[in-house]
């Protein structure tokens, strides 16, 4: 078994796709005609968005993300060589800043924002492989 998808339930799938394109430079890989499901080009593990309505269709009960309240207890992390530029871009395209880039004792640069739906997104540098 492998991690294939991370699927975030959102209020508006096309709006979220457009936001992720602008704020994080991702591109859309697929969107269903219903506008209730879309996938981004994120390599082997796909980041996808599903409409909140889809939760009910799938028999799930979810607490929708709320930008005005505390975030849900999980995050997506994007890895880039230039954390500072990615952070600036994200914030200038509508992300709420949570923590500006800072260097961790283990050498990684880490920053946090929240997206339009209030989800936590981490932007970090790769961790150097232990030799």
């Amino acid at each position: 078994m492998k991690l294939g998808y991370t699927i975030i339930y959102v209020a508006d799938v096309p709006e979220t796709v457009a936001f992720y394109e602008a704020a994080f430079g991702l591109s859309q890989r697929f969107i269903h005609d219903s506008n209730l499901y879309a996938e981004m080009e994120t390599g082997e593990t796909i980041l996808a968005f599903a409409g909140n309505e889809a939760a009910e269709m799938n028999g799930l009960a979810i607490l929708p993300n709320d930008p005005t309240g505390p975030a849900a207890g999980w995050e997506v992390c994007f890895v880039t060589g230039d954390v500072s530029a990615a952070y600036t871009r994200a914030v200038s395209h509508g992300c709420s800043p949570v923590s500006a880039p800072s260097q961790k004792p283990w050498g990684q640069t880490v920053s946090y924002v929240r997206d339009l739906n209030g989800c936590i997104v981490e932007i970090a540098s790769p961790i150097a492989q232990a030799s």
Partner: peptide, 19 residues
Amino acid sequence: LDILHASGGRIRVAQLARF
């Protein structure tokens, strides 16, 4: 109503009102 349905009727009324 949309949020109430997504939550399977489980969301607390106070939180729903906030939404």
